[in-house]
Computed example of a mutant assay.
Amino acid sequence: MVNSILLEALNEVFKPLGFRKKSANWYRVAGDLYCVVSVQESSWDESCYVNIGFAPAVKVKAGWLPESKCLVRFRLDAITSISREGLDLLYGEVVEVRGEGGLRVDIVEKVASPVARAVNSIESIHDLKSLLRTSVSDQVFIHREIRDELLAEG
């Protein structure tokens, strides 16, 4: 249930920003970078995860690259502007407490919109470097192919 509400909320926020939808993923190329926001259902319970990935646009074939193939990847909880309350909305039992309508509004406000604000303006390695330094915790996978460029000072 949380998964379907989250998918609706992300679609509402990401479609107007030029992201295309493929299954439970929103993706686009902006400037020199590809970005994908992906929803992953938990294997253990009714909760879900939001994964974010970036790759140089030249790595993308036919406009699509799954998050698992991106050179920079992190989960929603690594974005510092996402509150604990926002993260708690992704657990299955919250539907029973809040109801579907209230949960959807909260997910748009506390999850989908902050993710969109974080990734929408990222169009270059320089932008991504700034995002990683200012708005994302250290819980980030950075492939060795791009690590030196992103971690270099300046």
Rank of each mutant, 00 (worst) to 15 (best):
K110Y: 05
A116D: 06
G92T: 03
R117F: 13
N51K: 12
R144C: 04
V60Q: 02
C35G: 06
C48P: 00
E100R: 07
I125S: 11
R104D: 00
P66I: 15
W64F: 15
A9Y: 00
I122M: 05
G92D: 13
K129N: 13
N11C: 12
K110F: 03
E123C: 14
S121Q: 11
E153D: 14
L87N: 08
S121F: 08
I122K: 12
R84P: 01
H126M: 07
S23K: 07
N11A: 14
V136Q: 01
E109A: 14
E12S: 08
L71P: 03
I125F: 13
A152N: 10
P66L: 11
I122N: 12
W44E: 15
L7R: 09
L65E: 04
R73G: 04
E96S: 11
Y27Q: 07
R28Q: 11
T134S: 14
S42D: 13
C48L: 04
I79S: 06
V119W: 13
R98M: 14
D127M: 09
P56F: 13
I5E: 05
D138P: 12
L150T: 09
V111K: 08
V39C: 03
N3E: 15
Y34S: 05
N51M: 06
R73Y: 08
R73W: 08
P114T: 15
L131M: 11
F74Y: 11
E123D: 12
D138G: 14
D106N: 13
P114E: 09
N3W: 01
R20K: 10
R117P: 12
D127K: 10
I82G: 02
A62P: 04
K15N: 10
D88E: 15
G99Q: 09
V115K: 02
S4I: 11
G101V: 15
C35E: 06
A9W: 00
L132D: 11
L71Q: 13
L6T: 07
E85S: 12
R28F: 08
R28M: 10
K69M: 03
R104L: 13
D88P: 00
A116N: 07
W44S: 10
V37T: 04
L128P: 15
K21N: 05
Q139I: 02
E96I: 03
R75E: 07
W26A: 00
T80S: 07
V39P: 00
E41P: 01
Y27R: 06
L89C: 02
G86K: 00
S113W: 05
R144W: 06
R147I: 10
I52Q: 00
V50Y: 09
A57C: 12
A112V: 08
G31V: 09
F14M: 09
V13A: 08
D148F: 10
V72W: 09
A57G: 11
R75L: 07
R75I: 02
D45F: 02
S121A: 10
C48N: 13
S38E: 04
S38Q: 09
E109C: 06
D88Y: 04
F14D: 00
V105I: 05
L89H: 03
R144I: 07
E153V: 15
S130T: 12
E145V: 15
S38M: 05
